[in-house]
């Protein structure tokens, strides 16, 4: 299977590393056609560079998502409503 993917990539019938990389955000958004997404997955499974890169890319997104809570000021809503009372006329 890996050999077939490699041959297809070399012959230009399957996406290479650069193309896979350029469309990672689209792939993760699920906007790629099913067939193209499958080709991406085959490439990532087979490629010694794209595999670890994709893992780190995904890890980066996960870490970004959990990068700490923002402390909300006390009385945040109350202050906003007070401001509106004074100014929204």
């Amino acid at each position: 299977m890996k050999l077939i993917v490699m041959i297809k990539t070399l012959l230009g019938f399957a996406p290479n590393c650069e193309k896979v990389n350029a469309f990672l955000a689209d792939y993760m958004d699920g906007t790629l056609p099913e067939k193209t997404a499958k080709q991406f997955e085959d490439h990532i499974d087979m490629c010694k560079c794209c595999g670890p890169y994709f893992e780190q890319y995904r890890e980066t997104i996960d870490m970004t998502r959990c990068c700490g809570e923002v402390k909300l000021p006390e009385e945040l809503v109350e202050h906003t409503l007070t401001f509106l009372r004074k100014n929204a006329k």
Binding site: N16, C17, E18, N21, C49, Q56
Partner: peptide, 14 residues
């Protein structure tokens, strides 16, 4: 990342 002829120029470090 950099590419040469469509392939990764350097393998990512683990």
């Amino acid at each position: 990342p950099s590419f040469s002829k469509g392939m990764f120029l350097e393998s990512p470090h683990h």
